[in-house]
C-alpha cells in the first residue's frame, strides 16, 4: 500500500509528465507556455517533498514568475492565428522520436541501476535546525563564493546582451529589408 508521501509523489509525477507532454504537443504556443507554468508549480511541490523549501520558492518566483512571463511576451509577437494553422512538427520528426526513445531507455536503465554514495554532513535534522535558507546561504557564501559571483556576471551579460539584441536601433539597419534599402542608397524611412 502506498504511503502518503508516495501517493503525493505519484500525483506530482503524473501531473508533471502529463503537463510537460501536453506542453510540447499542443498547437497553441500560449497554451504551451501556460501548461509549462502549471508544470513548474508541480515541480516546486516536488522540491518541497525533498525538503528544499527555498528552491521551491525560487522555482516559483524565478521560473514561473519571470522566465515564463518572458516567454509569454515573446509568444505574443508571433501571429497566433497563423501559427495554429501551421504544422507543429518538423518533417522528419520520426528521427527525433527514435532518438528520444533510445535516450529514454538508456536513462531509465541508468535511473534504475543508480546507487547512492556515502551520506554527507547535511542531514535533514541539521538542515532543519538552522533552516534551509540559512544552510544554503552558509554553503553558498563559503564554498561557492566564486561560482556565485560568476553566475552574477553571467546574468549581467545576459541582461546586457538581451537588451542589445532586442533593441531596435533607429540609426542602423537591423532588418534585411532595411539593409537592402541601404544598399540601394535609399534613406531609411520610418
Amino acid at each position: 500500500m502506498l504511503t502518503l508521501p508516495q501517493f503525493f509523489f505519484i500525483y506530482f509525477a503524473l501531473a508533471i509528465i502529463f503537463l510537460a507532454g501536453m506542453a510540447v504537443n499542443v498547437r497553441n504556443p500560449v497554451h504551451s507556455v501556460l501548461l509549462v507554468l502549471a508544470m513548474f508549480f508541480h515541480m516546486a511541490g516536488v522540491y518541497l517533498m525533498l525538503n528544499a523549501e527555498f528552491l521551491a520558492a525560487v522555482q516559483v518566483i524565478v521560473y514561473a514568475g519571470a522566465v515564463l512571463v518572458l516567454y509569454l511576451f515573446v509568444v505574443f509577437l508571433v501571429n497566433i492565428k497563423e501559427e495554429i494553422r501551421l504544422k507543429r512538427f518538423i518533417g522528419s520528426y520520426t528521427t527525433g522520436r527514435v532518438i528520444t526513445i533510445g535516450m529514454l531507455a538508456t536513462l531509465l536503465a541508468a535511473a534504475w541501476s543508480f546507487k547512492l554514495g556515502p551520506a554527507g554532513t547535511w542531514s535533514i535534522e541539521a538542515v532543519r535546525e538552522i533552516t534551509h535558507t540559512r544552510a544554503l546561504g552558509i554553503e553558498m557564501f563559503s564554498h561557492y563564493m566564486l561560482p556565485f559571483e560568476i553566475a552574477g556576471v553571467i546574468l549581467l551579460v545576459a541582461v546586457v546582451g538581451g537588451m542589445a539584441l532586442a533593441k531596435k536601433d533607429r540609426n542602423r539597419a537591423t532588418t534585411t529589408e532595411e539593409r537592402r534599402a541601404l544598399m540601394r542608397g535609399e534613406e531609411l524611412g520610418e
Binding site: 522528419s92 528521427t95 527525433g96 532518438i99 533510445g102 535516450m103 538508456t106 536513462l107 541508468a110
Partner: peptide, 20 residues
C-alpha cells in the same frame, strides 16, 4: 537547426550509452 540538434542528441545518446 533541427538536423544539427539531432546529430548532437544522438552523439550525447551514444556517449551516455557507452558510459552506462
Amino acid at each position: 537547426v533541427h538536423h544539427y540538434l539531432a546529430y548532437m542528441a544522438s552523439g550525447a545518446f551514444i556517449i551516455l550509452f557507452w558510459m552506462l
